[in-house]
Each structure stands twice: as C-alpha cells, then as structure tokens.
Nucleic acid binder design. Structure first.
Lengths: 211, 211
DNA sequence: GTCTATATCGCGATAGAC
DNA sequence: GTCTATCGCGATATAGAC
C-alpha cells in the first residue's frame, strides 16, 4: 500500500517536472531551459530533478514522447482502431489526413514544443545522442503506418496511384518538419494550410476540360 | 604596406579557423565542436580564436555565410547574371532548378555542414540568438529571388500556372530543409532525387490520354 | 524512494599582460 | 595578435539525510 502511494507520488512528480520543463521552454526558450531553471520552477534542486530523469536530454525526450502519445490518441479516436496497435487498420484515410492536419494546427498553439522538437531532431544527428534511438523508432513507426494509410487512400482513388506511397509519406514528414523552423521565424506562416495545399496536389487530376 | 600584410594575414587566419571549425564539426559532430577543440585544431588558444570571431555562434554563422556565398556563385555561373545582383535576371529557370538540385547533391558530401545548418536553423527560434538576423535575411533574399524564377518557369509553361509561386518556393525550401535531419538519420535517403520528384509534380499535366 | 548539499569538470567569455 | 589567468555557468556524479 505504502509502496503504491510512493509510486503514485513519483509518477505525479514526473509529470509535474515534464509540465514545468515545457513551461520553461515556452517562456524562456530552449537555450535558457537549464536544469536549474526547471528544477526551480518545480521546487526541486537540480540533483533532485535528476532523480527522476537521468539527464537533461532524457527529460526533453520524455516530453516529446508524451506529445507523441497524445497525438497517437487523436488518430485512435479519429478512426476507431489504433495507431498504437501498430497497423492503423481501423482508421479511414480521410480521417487520418484530417487528423494529421489537426495535429499541425495544434502545433501552432505550442511553439515551445515545436522549438524543442526542431532542436532535438537536429541534435540527434550526433551518433551518440541519447534521443537518437527515440527518433529512429519514431520515424520508422510513424512512416510505416502512414504508408498503409496512403496506400489505402490510393486504392480508394483519393490520391494519385502513380506516386510512390513511401515518397508521399517521406515528403509529408519532411515538409511538416521543415516548415517548423520557418514558422518559428515567421509566425504568419500557416503550416497546416501549407501542407493541406500539398495534399491537394496528390489528388487525382480531373478529366481535364482542356478544349 | 605592413598594414596590408597584416590584414591579409588576418584574412588568411580567419579562413584557416573557418576550415578547422568545419573539420571539427565534421569529425566530432556539432555537440563536441567546442571553441577549445577548434582552437586546438588551428593551433590557437580559445581566447586567441575569439580575437577573430566574437563568439562561437558568430563563427558558425560565418561558416554558413561562406557556404551560401559559394552556392550563390553556382547560380551565377549557371546562368550568366547574378544571384548576388539581387534579381536573378540572367538565370534561366531550367538552369536554376538544375543548380538547386546540384546544391542538394553537393550537400550529401558535407554532412558536417548539413548538421550545422539544421542545428542553427532550429536554434534561431530563440528571439535573441545572434544568428537570427542572418537566417531572416537569408530566407527573405533567397525566397524573393526564387519566386522570380518560379514565376518565369510558370510563364514559360515549365510549371503549372495554377499554383502560387510563393507556395512553391516555400515548399521547396521547407522540403529541402526538412529532409536534412531525416537524411542525417538515414544516409540512404537521396535528398536531391526526392526533391526532384516533387519538382516533377509541379510540371503541367499532359493532355490526358484518358479515354 | 525521495531529495539536498557538495564537488567536479567542461564550457564560453573576459581582462589584461606580453 | 596572441597568450595566461580567471570568472561564472552549465550538467551531472557522489554521499548521505530523511
């Protein structure tokens, strides 16, 4: 019983730290988001914080992981069966596209997270960055499922069938990621609308009322 | 006379430092590219190095600036008149596209630079990052000229005329940038081919031999 | 298990001697 | 133009208090 209570307290603290870290990133920016600042914000010493997360990088990775989880749930609830179940079988392609754009739209409300993601996705170029494994798995997982959706979209005539599904998915991924630093420099940029425009390009050409 | 010699020596030293910095980034990665390491590589003390560049960030910005200059020259020599002259008037659209892809192809040979660029383009999200102004100007300049080229490409029937040139340019920019972190994680990825595929999508639809 | 205090080490940067 | 010395700050390992 007491073990459970202690455990529960630890979980709660972890989440308090995650939330405080995100706050600090959002307020002071990634560069000034030191372990000290975050520890202060949550009322802990730096060492106390590192009792819950082995390193600063692991803390930040955990934030992104939590975000992915929440986004995954959006796909789940949009379509019935699961993103998390690893095959995305129950999600209809239109719903998946719509949800993807909704996630991008939501991103525009959380610049701190966007900055954190952009930062880490660049940092993991380093072969022994602690978050590298996470990014590799995340990319592999997300792209594999997205390819299934895109293929289905092509079968159903929603997307042009002459394009490589893997190419489409990679392009959506790279485009969405690449827009983020540009948006951080220019908040006027509407990332979701921009990607939506690209998706229009993927739709089959109408019978051409040419002449 | 002696003033001139000293100046030339200073210039040479600056370039030696730039080159050493790039080496260190390429070899040890951006994270370990400390001022100390770079200073060692060029046979200087950290303070001695900072005589030439006021800060680490300025040094890295200078590297990217030098790269941009070289890339700009590629556009110049590809088309006659100048990228640098600010209007790109003399460059033919096909040549510009070809040169753009050549730059991407070249990037695959310099992962250190690519990592540095990805890193900095994320860092400048911070409103008072020293390289922020550089990135803002660079984006503004490059996109303005690229819009001219794309517009001309549309007038000449090379690209679909129903797409917003500014959207095309932004997409090319974001796509090229977004592919870079993905490529750093997966060297199999052919960035130039990938973007080339997108450019295919921009070409006018043929008269549709539909039925 | 939770947390603080302390210590270490590497970093970028500055001041001032040469 | 370049060094040495030094500062302040960052992350984090360790010891041990509760």
């Amino acid at each position: 019983m007491s073990g459970r209570a202690v455990y529960a307290k630890g979980i709660a603290k972890r989440e308090a730290i995650l939330s405080a870290a995100l706050d600090v990133v959002a307020t002071h920016g990634y560069r000034r988001a030191s372990v000290r600042e975050i520890a202060d914000a949550v009322g802990l010493s730096p060492a106390g914080l590192l009792h819950y997360f082995d390193s600063k990088e692991e803390l930040f990775t955990a934030i992104l992981r939590a975000r992915d989880e929440r986004d995954g749930l959006m796909f789940d609830s949009a379509g019935g069966r699961s993103f998390t179940a690893d095959d995305g079988a129950g999600v209809r392609p239109e719903k998946a596209i719509e949800t993807f754009l909704a996630v991008l739209r939501h991103n525009a409300a959380v610049p701190g997270l966007v900055q954190l993601y952009a930062q880490l996705s660049a940092e993991v170029a380093d072969p022994d960055h602690p978050a590298r494994a996470y990014f590799l798995e995340r990319t592999e997982h997300a792209e594999r499922i997205a390819v299934l959706w895109v293929s289905r979209a092509q079968e159903e005539g929603l997307f042009r069938a002459d394009l490589d599904p893997a190419w489409i998915v990679r392009t959506l991924h790279a485009l969405a990621d690449g827009l983020q630093p540009l948006w951080l420099l220019d908040p006027e940029l509407d990332m979701a609308a921009h990607v939506g425009q690209f998706i229009e390009l993927l739709k089959p050409v109408p019978p051409a009322p040419e002449r």
